[in-house]
Write a protein that binds this DNA or RNA. Structure first.
Lengths: 236, 236
DNA sequence: TTCGATTTGTACGTATGTATT
DNA sequence: AAATACATACGTACAAATCGA
């Protein structure tokens, strides 16, 4: 029987896995569990808690910064990032930033999960449904349909997503909303977002007028550098 | 008149800009100029050359590693990355990896630059033109049209790109090649790739059958994690 | 195969600078 | 002005991977 060891957080110096990797893992778990509200302990505090040097702490923290999980602010501290995973597909309304953006709520209710969504929502029977019309200078440019699991936390930050882009003929209602003729095609974007523990957070399907809102990606060697904005999702 | 100073590479300790930032800039320039063939000097050599500590060298190199410009290999050294920027849009042929991929060359010649491309190719009068048909299991799924500046180096690595995705009605020839009926819509992807010094390397327009090859993006918080493959571009 | 040399990885320590509160 | 937090920079030492003699 082991001694009374309540200090579960301790690094194993004899382990072949490096100290900074162990520390990274501990921090990541604590962050996921919501143990830190927004700010994590300072480098000095982490040094003392885990009996490691400052450089070890810095490497561990840096790893999580690179993964987008933490953010450092000089003179202030290190904070849990609330940068969501969404926001990579920039809708380049040809009319530039000066344009007036607007969102019109078309529908919002709790519904029985449609069959074709069920698979993606992990077979939940009910879900929340939001349908919105996006406008730029009073011109409709997109329709978005969001589906959320009923027990999902509101305002959770997604940590991963998948997106499938295609095009398809528009149906009657959407055509009317987008003010285009029936039979025209629209750009479609299906996206599924996951939380850090793998749960599904949201399924969304967007239909875009290809003439008014193509999808614009800007990339450098390692990352997407400029696809800042998707329409924000503010749950009521 | 300045003294005879051939030693252009020296860091300014009194400068407000950190040493590791200065070193990063020097290395980046040398890399771009092709000064290093593949391997850059070891950490020890850089320490001695620039009279800085190992940690300073490591920070500078790490910066370039994060930007995807360098790659480290334990026990071997640090190397100039040749990971190209292309290869982010994964064409998810619904028929999986097992499927037989094929490319049919439709056209390849030197042409007068079409007007609508001229702007993108920086007003060059002539360019190389390649038109290819992509097939999966003998089924045509996409048409790609590549335009290269005539004096561009072959097999250069792009370091940045922009991509615009939309959809449009297909013309007669493309419809025949893709074996779809005229009037149908296709997914279109315009992409422009730049070299590290900002020169344009390639302009490409791809037309995809939306039913057979939607565009699939997989993302984590900071990066695209799984959009490995675009059709390889092997110049004859 | 073994051994040494080289190179990056890990980890410690110390000191000082700069931003924020 | 002082305390706190991260940034920069120096130093040392040993471990682990690689390669060639």
């Amino acid at each position: 029987m082991p001694f009374l060891e309540k200090k579960k957080k301790a690094l194993d110096e004899k382990s072949p896995v490096p100290l900074h990797v162990q520390l990274t893992a501990i921090l990541e778990k604590q962050i996921e569990s919501g143990y830190f509200n927004k700010k994590i302990p300072s480098e000095r505090e982490l040094m003392e808690t885990y009996h490691v040097s400052r450089s070890t702490v810095r490497v561990a923290v840096l790893t999580l910064v690179q993964e987008g999980i933490l953010e450092k602010r000089h003179g202030k501290g290190t904070f849990v990032s609330n940068k969501p995973v969404q926001g990579w597909l920039k809708i380049t309304n040809d009319t530039e930033n000066s344009a007036e953006q607007d969102i019109k709520l078309l529908d919002y209710r709790r519904i029985l999960t449609p069959d074709h969504i069920k698979l993606k929502l992990e077979y939940e029977n009910e879900c929340y449904y939001i349908e919105r019309l996006m406008l730029t200078d009073q011109t409709p440019v997109a329709v978005e349909r969001h589906y959320y699991p009923t027990e999902a936390h509101i305002k959770i930050n997604a940590s991963g997503s998948e997106q499938i882009i295609s095009c398809e003929p528009v149906n009657k209602t959407d055509a009317e909303n987008l003010k285009i003729t029936r039979g025209m095609y629209v750009l479609s974007s299906e996206s599924i977002m996951y939380s850090s523990n793998g749960d599904l957070v949201e399924y969304c399907k967007g239909l875009f007028r290809p003439d008014l809102s193509p999808i614009h990606l800007k990339m450098s060697r390692n990352t997407l550098t400029k696809c800042e904005k998707r329409y924000p999702i503010d749950l009521i």
